[in-house]
Design a protein around this nucleic acid. Structure first.
Lengths: 340, 340
DNA sequence: GAGGCACGCTGAACCGGATAAGTATCGCGA
DNA sequence: TCGCGATACTTATCCGGTTCAGCGTGCCTC
């Protein structure tokens, strides 16, 4: 009842284990007829290579690791990760590579997981996400010597292979668009302030606002949840000189912000313009549909996976700059109210 | 520079490989002092067990498999899977179990993946999702002899361990609620007609409508996407005797339906009541917030993971009926218009 | 003081493949 | 006809652990 091994095949075929191994791996050293016989027997008794035994001889694990360091409840809410995973899978699946996922609570745990997976020969490489401004993981992963692709800006990715997209350009484009519409009081509801891309967007936002004569610009940091997005929006809209436009760092918060605005009897886009970063179907189904900074997240994941696979093959791999998010104007943006 | 093995530890400690193995695994057979010395050396040189070598001796893979048979674009949209994965992870992660994920396009590919993972000793068991009405996977997985927990009704799960929740009760509760409000024309925008839970809901809906004197009840099947939800809604609301209430099989479609209604200048809930199956934050942030059939999806995944882990331990495991979804009334439901 | 037993450890087999090295067979050219 | 080399295998070893049989030592017991 136990799984057949090459020894079983060898016995049935009347040859040695070695011959079977050569035959099954397409190596020279066996005649065509013997090879065919061995393959037939292997197929008949349903033989499958035992990956453990192969791995013991230094073979690849054919698996890529991904440790996600976010609160678990988050994943269900934020489409980003699932889209990313879809994209990664799209590259892995045709090559029979599997994806090993674990949700962790902090960077220490994340590193422990990577050490374990790598140390135990379970993965051939990993994709690191949520690059921080000062990220201890980079040095630790470099020291591990494991192939790693980092989703994040090359300025902080050390010697790990970065896959990134420009954060500043979309911010600038958005601010330009809003100021062109006439907005002079713009707020930004940003994500976690520790994340590098948040820092980069913050900075680009300040610079663009400065340059384009935005009289009042505020940035509020949140944890990306709808609740915090709503709370931030409520606070912003309650201030004496409330913004006429708000830019959100994800669509979840943008939608929550939209609700708050409507709850406060503000017309969107008449009284308030809203821009969402990341364009999920969600942005398009609310009323009005949200002007969004759209990018192809599955492609982003696919690019990272491609680099990682090349890296694992031992090829020389360079970083890759993906397309920056593009501004997609929809119904949630308009000129500010006249008497603002 | 290569990874230290127990042979290295043995040499340093001046004992045999066997003694080291006993010490590291907490087995009797070594003195406390020797054990401490060995552990200290292991820690010092950064020894990690090689899972391949362990697996070769019939050890567990400490990994659970999950093959998702849906179009990739789907995963980013539907919060269900990510919440489910969160819940599964919540059980696996503390036990250092990993989750192996692969997105596949059909059941044949899904079974091929499971066969490979199981055959190669990469997983100890799997969670099967999206049970169909006539599902060939059940028999194939039974034949494989792998521990499997099925998310789906026990009527079709064969000898695999089912984890399910009653689909009929929430449907009945919803129809009762809507008829109590006065609705007599109720439509249902359902999911994929192949899925068993869709079939069960369809049937429960028909029965409840019949019993409660709903004069017109329609069920439309979709692929769960916002687009199809919107299209179905548009068609329903354009019919001469349009429904006064629509029940959606997921929140994505409910939100899309809400948009369509508003686009057609129908007041929700004044002209049309909307109920969403599955209650994500999305349901609460739209205006009006959606009356929803809420259930704890992460808990659902957690229960499945618990059963699977027990099954892997060789314990006798019975199926588990999770809480049925509970109707959570919000602003999207009200009595139908008077002159309906 | 001899027998018995528990303890602490060693040595070796084993898991299922990959692979280097060795061997028998054959064909072919000199 | 000998020798060389290619072919088609076999044999043996290795990977890094686990596990079992065995063995010496020390202590307890009768």
């Amino acid at each position: 009842m136990k799984r057949p091994t090459i020894a079983d095949i060898a016995k049935q075929a009347g040859v040695s284990k070695g011959a079977v191994s050569y035959a099954l791996n397409g190596q020279p050293g066996v005649s065509a007829s013997t090879r065919a016989r061995i393959l037939a027997i292997a197929d008949e008794i349903g033989w499958r290579p035992n990956s453990a035994a192969r791995a013991l001889n230094g073979a690849r694990a054919d698996t890529v690791g991904l440790a996600l360091c976010r609160p678990a409840r988050f994943l269900g809410v934020e489409p980003f990760f699932m889209e990313l995973i879809s994209g990664i899978e799209g590259e892995l699946s045709p090559r029979s590579y599997a994806l090993m996922i674990q949700v962790v609570t902090d960077h220490d745990e994340e590193m422990a997981v990577y050490r374990r997976w790598w140390g135990e020969g379970r993965i051939d490489g990993a994709i690191m996400v949520d690059l921080h401004f000062a990220d201890s993981r980079v040095a630790e992963l470099e020291a591990l010597g494991m192939p790693v692709v980092v989703l994040g800006d090359p300025s902080k990715s050390g010697s790990l292979i970065p896959v990134w997209s420009d954060e500043a350009v979309p911010v600038r484009e958005t601010v330009e668009y809003l100021t062109a519409l006439g907005h002079r009081r713009i707020a930004r509801v940003a994500g976690l302030p520790k994340l590098l891309h948040t820092v980069l967007r913050d900075k680009a936002f300040d610079v663009a606002c400065e340059r384009l004569g935005v009289s009042e610009s505020v940035t509020v940091h949140t944890d990306y949840t709808g609740e915090e997005g709503a709370r931030a929006t409520r606070r912003l809209l309650s201030s004496p000189s409330r913004p006429t436009a708000v830019v959100y760092d994800n669509d979840i918060m943008a939608v929550a912000g939209l609700s708050v605005a409507q709850e406060m009897r503000l017309d969107v886009p008449g009284d308030l313009s809203i821009v969402a970063w990341d364009d999920s179907p969600l942005s398009q189904v609310v009323r009005p549909p949200l002007t969004a900074l759209s990018r192809d997240i599955p492609a982003y994941g696919a690019h990272a996976a491609q680099r990682l696979l090349s890296l694992i093959q031992g090829e020389r791999v360079t970083g890759f700059e993906d397309h920056a998010a593009r501004l997609t104007p929809r119904g949630s943006t308009a000129p500010p109210p006249v008497r603002s």
